[in-house]
């Protein structure tokens, strides 16, 4: 693992810590939902830097699956926040 990849991991970890701060601190529930969405997108970035660092391409499969599943989770949270019925 080269120096550049370590720097990339450090920057992504710093971003993830900022997201975690907002999840813990956020005054309302939508703040936390937005932060969780952003954290999911950051994890996709982690997966692609992992693919670069190790040279194995199955990390990209994980990134694709994570992007889609985090989208479904975000939509479920959003419908829950609306406070109305799920099928309206």
């Amino acid at each position: 693992m080269s120096c550049l990849e370590l720097i990339a991991f450090a920057v992504l970890l710093l971003s993830a810590v900022l997201c975690l701060y907002r999840i813990g601190r956020g005054p309302t529930a939508p703040d936390r939902a937005v932060s969780i969405d952003i954290l999911g997108t950051l994890i996709v970035g982690f997966c692609c830097i992992m693919a670069l660092a190790t040279g194995r391409d199955y990390y990209m499969n994980i990134a694709i699956a994570w992007a889609l599943i985090s989208f479904v989770a975000t939509l479920a949270l959003a419908k829950y926040l609306e406070g109305r019925s799920y099928d309206a």
């Binding site: 939902a33 996709v44 694709i64 985090s70 109305r84």
Partner: peptide, 25 residues
């Protein structure tokens, strides 16, 4: 994966903001 992120991330944020407004934030 870039195409998926580009399609899904703005839609998710729009849904959360709509939910936040309708829940009274």
């Amino acid at each position: 994966c870039a195409a998926f992120v580009l399609l899904t991330s703005p839609v998710g944020a729009h849904a959360i903001c709509r939910g936040a407004y309708l829940s009274g934030v």
